[in-house]
Structures are given as structure tokens and as C-alpha cells.
Amino acid sequence: MNAKTNARRRITLTILRHNPQDANSKPRLQRYALEEAEGMTLFIALNEIREHQDASLQFDFVCRAGICGSCAMMVNGRPRLACRTLTRDLPAETTLAPLPFFALIGDLSVDTGKWMRGMSERLETWLHAREREADLSRIEERMSPDLAEAIYALDRCVECGCCVAACGTAQMRQDFVGAVGFGKIARFRLDPRDRRDDAAFYELIGDDSGVFGCMSLLACHDVCPKSLPLETQIAFLRRKMAFLSAA
């Protein structure tokens, strides 16, 4: 190892800062320079800045492992999870901004929870059990491992908001359901315990703010940190909903 490979890179994070709670706050860009460390993620870099340079910097995190979905932000114009982004994969000059579309709390922190809850209530993304009252004394019905796997694959969504922030349709039309919602509908559609049929799902997503509003810009699919098959799921729902009407 020579000295050159050991030399640490200096990186600069330019962060969009604003506090909407403060009437005097104006959106501005602030630059922070720091030394890159081995295996440094954006999440670590932001903590470093908050600890040593600017305690007022706001950003969210919980799990630090890509499971909670709290630390999504725009990294050089694209939504990503800060905890899953290594600084070595970024250029020396990187710009960070809060996710668009969601209500801004301050700096890089946005309220995805409120929107996700609204989406969930609108699309009724919970199990509508076939039986109104669960019989706890009876053994649960069996489910094939393949089906359980398929449901689980869609259940991996962490509601980080990256798909909605990347969606051009959602940016233009605030009432658009967004890929996260379609993913959830696809998940409950698979579930044999859910009593809803396609006609019931049509009531939830069968219009221009639902699946027919999707313009297939496909950015949702490309930025999903959990690599969910959003493109194929939305195409599948579109076919089911469109030909339901033709029938």
C-alpha cells in the first residue's frame, strides 16, 4: 500500500436547507466539507456533520440498515436511502435535497408518514378477511410456499417514498396514487385470505388518479431501494383493471 491509496478523499456535501416553521427561513444551499472514511455511507457523513460542524442540520434515520425507510432523500437529483448509499460511489461534490412531494419538516427531513397513512386509508391497504370474525380455535388455512414468497416479496416495501419522489406523474398530479400504493394493492390481490375481487380493487384504483394515470415513466421501478418489481406489478394491475371493464 502506498501513501496515495491511503490518502483520504475530501468530499463536499451541498445541502438544501430550509425550516418551514420559521417565517424568516429562506431555502438556501449550504456546503459542508469533510474527509471520507472507509465504508462511509451518506448517513454516517450526515451524522459527522451534525456532530462536528452543524448541530442544527435536520435529517431522519432510525435503523441505519435500509429497513425503516426514514432516510430517503434526493442525492444529486435522484431519491435514495442515505444509509444504503456509500460516499465512495458518489462524486466529490454531492448535492442533497429533501424528497419532493411530501410535507417538509426541515432541511432533509420530510413527513412521509402522513402521506403514507392517507394513501393507506384511501386504498384500504389492510386485509379484508373473508370471515368477519376470526375463529381463533381453528387451525389457519395452508398457503403454498410460492404464494407466501410472492406476497412477502411485495411486502418488503418500507414506504420510504423514493418511488413517489421519482415519479414524474406524481410531481405533476398530487392526487396520483403512486407506485407504493399499486404495490400494496398487488400484494392484497395475491392474498387468498382477502375477500376483495378485481371489481373491488377497481373501485380503489380504476381511474386517472389510479392505475390509468400511470404514464409508465418507470423511475419508480429504477429507484426502489428494495428492488420491488413495480413496473411489472403496475402493468399487471393495468391489464386486470382495463379488461375488467371490457368484460
Binding site: M74, G77, R78, P100, A166, G168, Q171, S216, L217, L218, A219, D222
Partner: peptide
């Protein structure tokens, strides 16, 4: 959005 995203399909 398209300018910032640099995403071909957008």
C-alpha cells in the same frame, strides 16, 4: 424533475 433525475424514460 426530468433534468434533475437524468432518467432516460422520464
Amino acid at each position: 424533475h426530468a433534468k434533475a433525475m437524468r432518467h432516460a424514460d422520464t
